[in-house]
Design a protein around this nucleic acid. Structure first.
Lengths: 120, 120
DNA sequence: ACATTATTGTCAGGTGGCTAACAAACTGAA
DNA sequence: TTCAGTTTGTTAGCCACCTGACAATAATGT
């Protein structure tokens, strides 16, 4: 669905957050997207190159950069299709209890594995 | 766990299959690993470069290549730690019914999404 | 027999992850 | 005040995934 717009999934996700939450510090997006600093750096640089996002250095703390959608970015965002259909196709009509169980199992497993890798 | 051996996850997985099922046609591994031809080609070339795997052209069908572990590959394989602990850490003690539900939900969702992308 | 089609592997180029190492900027304690 | 430590972003280099295009080789149909 994003291919006609030459957008990758994570690029879309950055735009999504900027569209919904407004301008955001790059370092906060690292937490939100659960991605490494370096990874986000690369993704943002692509969006900047394409002209959809601006990086503005903070006045007080010159290390931090504020990410803001450009006019072109907003225009693109409004043209994009609604990706919610993906979620619908995947999960519509599936038993709620089964979905709850799935979330629980995956969350538990993830937490355990994170603890394991912390120890290593 | 694999880092000390300079092995990526998929590289390990290829060795795993060669160790358990013996020499295998590259094109069959594509099915097993559920990965694109081009992706496997790259991974195999890394293993060949490292000297753990050999690629032998088939006598009858010269397009096909048989993958076989080298002596160095077998030696490495025997030194590798058992990765089953990962599965254990993640899922031990979790309710069997919950795990069954999880598998069911994810399988259904995956099938539906595959059908969707087939149509697109 | 020959042309078309299908299969297999590779190459090129892109996305998106990671770690390690670095520079610049800020913070805080001696 | 200065200097060590922390935070933030970038760069470089790797792995693993993808698509699209290509070459070589089989297989098939006329």
């Amino acid at each position: 669905m994003l291919r006609p717009y030459d957008l990758g999934a994570t690029q879309w996700y950055v735009l999504y957050h900027l569209a919904h939450d407004g301008p955001t510090m790059q370092r906060d997006l690292v937490q939100t997207l659960q991605v490494e600093r370096a990874t986000l750096s690369a993704i943002v640089s692509v969006l900047v190159r394409k002209g959809f996002v601006e990086q503005v250095s903070d006045r007080v703390d010159q290390r931090q950069k504020l990410l803001r959608m450009t006019a072109a970015g907003t225009k693109l965002w409004n043209e994009l299709p609604d990706l919610a259909v993906i979620h619908d196709v995947a999960f519509d009509g599936i038993d709620d209890a089964a979905i709850a169980a799935t979330i629980q199992v995956l969350q538990t497993a993830t937490e355990r594995l994170e603890k394991l890798t912390d120890r290593i």
